[in-house]
């Protein structure tokens, strides 16, 4: 059992004996409104380095909005986002990407006209620095860089076991594989923090098992911190270290899966409250 206190910067040890580092990201009193609608109301939580952090909640609870705040699509009216011990100023999504935050989308957002290889190569964009001139004549840095990064991308392709579809346009791939390619594209950036928006939505049991395995392997092999939104409670309870529960834009629970499951408010939100 962990001995961590809230907002601590020291790590903790998980049930299965993994050492988790200090806080990598901290959301402080985030409030996000769209006109009169309050999507997120005064929510704070933290993500520790190396852990798998799940955000759960019923539909419309504000989970995806929270992910969009982290990745820079939405700018909250109130509250602060801290990353790597620094307060993050208001940033555009591509600047957030350069900080080392990558993500996947609820509805697959791959580049349909490009091959698997090109999709994952695009994920390494923030790491490739060759100038336009060098690229135009394909000499020196551009050509060298292309080969180095291809090497890295091939490692990811091997890791995700998608060697056979390397050159296939992703539009032609089945759903489960597309999800995997999207994970590969996010991994290619070698992110410090990986955000997964419903990585298992619409999958059958085997595909869910595959995806869970990949998520655990990513965390284990690369030490990547992962924050994920998921509806399948079985999966969430199995793979995540700590869980945030949201309902109607508010945080109603935060803790280990066991703690969250025992929380009365969480049970009420999921199963409904009896009114007698």
């Amino acid at each position: 059992m962990n001995t961590m206190t809230e907002n601590s910067t020291v790590g903790y040890v998980t049930d299965d004996g993994r050492q988790i580092g200090g806080t990598i990201m901290e959301m402080k009193n985030i409030t996000l409104r769209f006109g009169g609608v309050v999507a997120i109301e005064n929510i704070s939580f933290d993500i520790h380095e190396g852990e798998i952090r799940a955000i759960i909640g019923p539909n419309g609870a504000g989970k995806s909005s929270m992910l969009n705040v982290i990745s820079g699509f939405y700018h909250p009216q109130e509250g602060e986002v801290w990353f790597n011990g620094q307060k993050r100023p208001s940033m555009k999504p591509f600047e957030v990407a350069a900080l080392g935050i990558a993500r996947t989308f609820q509805n697959i957002a791959l580049f349909k006209g490009m091959s698997t290889l090109d999709n994952i190569m695009t994920g390494r964009l923030t790491k490739m620095k060759a100038g336009m001139l060098s690229q135009a004549i394909w000499w020196g840095k551009a050509a060298r860089e292309e080969e180095e990064h291809r090497q890295k991308v091939e490692e990811i392709i091997d890791f995700l076991e998608i060697q056979a579809i390397r050159k296939t346009p992703v539009g032609r791939l089945p759903y489960g594989l597309q999800k995997r390619v999207e994970l590969g594209r996010a991994l290619a950036a070698e992110p410090k923090l990986l955000l997964l928006d419903e990585p298992m939505a619409g999958m059958n049991v085997e595909e869910k098992e595959d995806m869970s395995r990949f998520i655990l392997d990513v965390n284990d092999e690369f030490g990547t911190t992962i924050a994920l939104i998921e509806h399948d409670m079985g999966v969430v309870m199995d793979i995540s270290d700590r869980v945030v529960v949201m309902d109607y834009g508010k945080k109603i629970g935060d803790g280990t899966p066991a703690e969250v499951l025992a929380n009365k408010e969480v049970i009420d939100a999921y199963l409904g409250v009896s009114h007698d």
Partner: peptide
């Protein structure tokens, strides 16, 4: 996919 492009950097 311009949104995904931006998120990638």
């Amino acid at each position: 996919m311009d949104i995904a492009a931006e998120i990638i950097g």
